[in-house]
Simulated scan of single mutants.
Amino acid sequence: MKTFILLTKLSADTARQIKDRAKLGRNWLEQVKEKCPEVKFVAHYALLGEYDFLDIYEAPDEETAAKVSMISLANGAFQAQSLIAIPYKRFLELTDEISKQGMIV
């Protein structure tokens, strides 16, 4: 499974629905579980700043991650940005591989 980061910014209308926030969040999660049952959520955070929420999850591929973003957009997100995350230890292994090949000084 690959690790993905989802950054979500709510639409102005959705952001104003404070009293319905928990219900809207549950509906979104139920849709993700129904349409992407292989997705495993690792963490969910509310943010202060440019984005409203950050989700860390595991999915088998980029197409599944795209579905998660599309479900977010269909449920009141103004913007949903998905990023693939490489564990830092693996990142260091990759830099070591490149270094051994003489590509990095």
Rank of each mutant, 00 (worst) to 15 (best):
M1Q: 07
T3W: 05
T3F: 03
T3Y: 07
L6P: 03
L6C: 06
L7E: 01
L7Q: 00
S11D: 12
S11H: 02
D13G: 13
D13E: 12
D13W: 13
T14G: 05
T14D: 01
A15Q: 07
A15N: 05
A15K: 04
A15P: 04
R16S: 15
I18D: 14
D20N: 15
A22F: 11
L24P: 02
W28L: 14
L29K: 10
E30W: 03
E30S: 12
E30Y: 02
Q31C: 09
V32D: 01
V32R: 02
K33F: 00
K35I: 03
C36S: 06
C36R: 07
P37E: 00
P37C: 00
E38S: 15
V39P: 00
V39N: 02
V39H: 03
F41C: 01
V42N: 13
V42H: 08
H44W: 11
H44Y: 14
Y45I: 04
A46Y: 12
A46D: 04
L47P: 03
L48A: 08
L48N: 04
Y51A: 05
Y51C: 01
Y51M: 09
D52W: 01
D52T: 00
F53P: 03
L54M: 12
I56K: 00
A59V: 02
A59M: 02
P60F: 05
P60K: 13
D61C: 04
D61L: 05
D61R: 05
E63A: 07
A65P: 06
A65H: 12
V68S: 04
S69H: 00
I71A: 01
S72M: 11
S72E: 02
A74F: 03
A77R: 00
F78P: 01
A80H: 02
A80T: 02
A80P: 04
S82M: 05
L83Y: 11
I84S: 13
I84R: 15
A85T: 06
I86Y: 09
Y88A: 14
Y88T: 10
Y88D: 07
K89H: 11
R90N: 03
R90Y: 02
F91D: 08
L92H: 06
T95M: 11
T95A: 13
T95D: 10
D96H: 14
D96K: 15
D96E: 12
S99F: 09
S99M: 10
S99T: 08
Q101V: 06
Q101W: 10
Q101E: 08
G102N: 05
M103T: 07
M103D: 11
I104E: 12
I104G: 07
